[in-house]
Amino acid sequence: MINVRNLKKSYQISDDRYQVLNDINLDVSKGEFVSIMGPSGSGKSTLLNILGGLDTPDSGEVLINNINIDSLNDKKKTLFRRENIGFIFQNYQLLHNMTVEENISMPMHADKINKNIIEKQVKDIIDAVGLKGKEKNFPSQLSGGQQQRVSIARALIMNPVLILADEPTGNLDRKTGTEVLKLLSNLHRNNHLTILMVTHDIYAASYSDRIILLKDGHVEMDVKHEKEGENVDLITNILEKLNS
C-alpha cells in the first residue's frame, strides 16, 4: 500500500540546514491504522505532507499502490490526490461561506460528478459521521467536534484508499476527541480504510493498530500489536497499575 524508501528532507533556515527526515524506511499495508508520534520537530508532519504529495523529498521515494507520487506532474498529482487520498487537518480547513453539505461535496464537484450521485453520497456520508440535520448549517454554527466530522466526511467522499490525518483531535477536548477517534476507528474497521494519523497524544494513538515513533528525523520505534495471547493477565496488570 505505502512504501517509503530512504526518504530524506531538509530545510534551509538562514545559514543553517536542518535535516528533518533522515533516511526513513517504512511499509504500511492496506487496512492498517497507523499513528506517527514524536516530539515537535521530529519530522512527523513533514513525513505526512510528503506522503500526501503536499511536499517533495530531497531524495528517496514514496510509493502509494506502486505509484511514485513525486514522479507525477502537477495536474496528475492533484488528480491522484483527489481520487486516492483523504486529508484531515487539526484546524478542519473548512470553507466558512459554504454549508456542511457544500463543504463535503466540494471534491466531487471538482470531478464533475453527476448531481444525483453527489446528493446520494453526501447524504450517506452525513449519516455515517452523525451529522444528520446539520446539512444546511455553516461551520461557524457547529462545535469543534462537529466541524471535524465535516472534515472527515469531506475526506471520505471520494472513497479514498488512504486517509492522512494531521493531529485530528489536536483542537478538541478529550471527550469530543474520543468521539472523533471512535468515528475514525469505526470507519477504519467497517470500510477497511488505511489511515495514517500524526499525533503527539498517546491516548489518540491508542485507537490505532500500530505506533511509529519518530525522533530527530528517523524511526526510533515501530510497535505493532501482537494478537496472540494478548489478554493473558491483562486485567491483573491493569489492576496492579491502578493500585501502584
Partner: peptide, 10 residues
Amino acid sequence: IKKILQLHYL
C-alpha cells in the same frame, strides 16, 4: 506502547 495497543484491542 505494546501494553497500550493491547488495551486498545481489549
